[in-house]
Amino acid sequence: MTERPSKLYSVTAPGRWLMFALAWVCVALGVVGIVTPVMPGTVFLILAAWLFARSSPRFENWLLTHPRLGPSVVAWRENGAIPRWAQLVATGSMAGSFVLLVVIGLSTPVLAIIGTIFVGVSAYMLTRPTE
């Protein structure tokens, strides 16, 4: 029986390079999200791990074993967990952003769409396990 090709080889070479580059953009955004309260970083790190898994297993391993960046990605992969602090910061950031959008005067239909998205994302995050 022949071995099934890995996910790495199911993507064309230009596709792997694009995914690799996007993964590094996501790592950078994830680091920014870790050091600033405005943007959640974990989401970008999870996306980076997914992109590295399809473009560079070496860098996927680097990210998963990184002492500061890896634990949240590993927790997500193992059981869909999001740390409670991350849930609260992300939800608070969305609430603050929504208030800012109201203050700057966005139209009601646009606010309704954004509010629906924020409530849906917050509900999903807050129902995930914390460990």
Score class of each variant (00 low, 15 high):
R54V: 03
T12W: 06
V43K: 01
L45S: 01
L47D: 06
V103S: 08
I117D: 04
P109V: 08
P109E: 10
F98W: 11
S97Q: 12
T91K: 09
V119H: 01
L22N: 06
V121F: 13
V121C: 03
T2D: 15
V31S: 04
L29T: 07
R84K: 15
V119N: 00
R128V: 11
F52P: 01
I104C: 08
G30A: 04
L63M: 03
G33D: 01
T91L: 10
L47F: 11
V73M: 02
A75G: 06
F20L: 09
L126D: 08
A13T: 15
G105T: 00
V110K: 13
M94G: 02
S55V: 05
V43M: 10
T12S: 15
A13H: 12
Q87L: 07
W76N: 10
P5L: 05
A90D: 02
P71G: 04
T130Y: 13
A48H: 00
T36W: 13
G92L: 11
V11S: 03
V99M: 13
M125A: 14
T127Y: 12
G15V: 03
W85P: 07
R84L: 15
F52Q: 03
I82T: 06
G30Q: 00
L106T: 08
L100P: 06
V31F: 05
E78M: 09
G120M: 07
E3W: 12
T42F: 07
T108R: 13
A53K: 03
I82P: 02
A81N: 09
T42D: 08
A21L: 12
L47E: 09
S10E: 14
A112W: 12
V38K: 12
G92M: 07
A81H: 03
T12Y: 08
S93E: 04
C26T: 02
P5I: 01
M1W: 12
V119M: 06
G15L: 02
W76K: 12
P129R: 13
R16C: 07
P67T: 07
R68L: 11
Q87E: 09
A21P: 08
G33F: 02
V119D: 01
Y124C: 04
V74Q: 05
L63Y: 01
V110A: 15
F44P: 00
W17K: 13
S6Q: 14
V32Y: 15
V25P: 02
L8T: 01
P129W: 12
W76H: 12
V25R: 09
P109I: 12
T12R: 10
V43I: 14
L29K: 08
P14H: 02
G105Y: 00
F44Q: 06
V11D: 00
F98V: 07
V27C: 04
R128Q: 14
T91E: 15
S107H: 14
W85A: 13
